[in-house]
């Protein structure tokens, strides 16, 4: 069966997404001709899609992959961490300052939350966004601080520790913010409130 227009268009897009593995994506797509119609064909195509998408994501989010050392530059991880921590830092700092009577930074948040329904939306979304941003910052900087090594006989995984001040600073700030937020959440959950 000859490939249709949609199939050729998809092949072009996926091959483009494949980057340095474009030939492999093309090779996997060419095998579609061998797959029988129906479920097997869809399964095969799904696998190729996930491969091309994974390659595109890797190229976009991890541009250092495939280069010498295969690790993100320390500065990149630190910058990424700082950007990711801006929102959680503002939120935690504003809330803490508000507790000691400096409400100017928390005022915009309080104003926004005053609108009916927004508090519920905030409570549903904020934990995921704020803790997610902290987790991303920690993940990126843990990745450059503890670099994985090679497997020896499939049993040992060597790990190199690289202590760079900027990455350690992001780790410390991210850890502090996570501890404050989780500590506060635990404190709230276990506080005795008489009826």
């Amino acid at each position: 069966m000859k490939p249709g227009l949609l199939e050729r268009l998809l092949a072009g897009l996926l091959t483009e997404a494949g980057g340095k593995h474009a030939d492999w994506v093309r090779a996997a797509l060419a095998e579609l001709s061998a797959a029988p119609d129906g479920r097997a064909r869809m399964d095969w195509l799904w696998g190729v899609l996930s491969m091309a998408f994974g390659e595109l994501l890797t190229r976009t989010l991890l541009p250092w992959r495939g280069r010498e050392g295969e690790a993100p530059p320390d500065g990149f991880a630190a910058l990424f961490g700082i950007v990711a921590l801006v929102l959680p830092f503002y939120f935690v700092a504003a809330a803490l300052l508000d507790q000691i009577g400096v409400g100017v930074f928390f005022a915009p948040i309080a104003y926004w939350l005053a609108e009916p329904g927004r508090a519920r939306l905030f409570n549903a979304v904020a934990p995921g966004v704020i803790l997610g941003a902290i987790a991303l910052a920690l993940w990126a900087n843990l990745g450059v601080t503890f670099r994985g090594g090679r497997h020896i006989a499939g049993l040992i995984y060597e790990m190199k520790l690289r202590l760079r001040p900027m990455n350690l600073a992001v780790l410390a700030l991210g850890g502090l913010l996570a501890a404050l937020l989780l500590g506060h959440a635990l404190g709230e959950a276990f506080t005795y409130r008489p009826h």
Partner: peptide
Amino acid sequence: RHGYDLSRETGLKSGTLYPLLI
């Protein structure tokens, strides 16, 4: 060997097979 034949023989899906081949 062709990729699809290898997939059928091993039971590996294309998304697993090709990264291994690479």
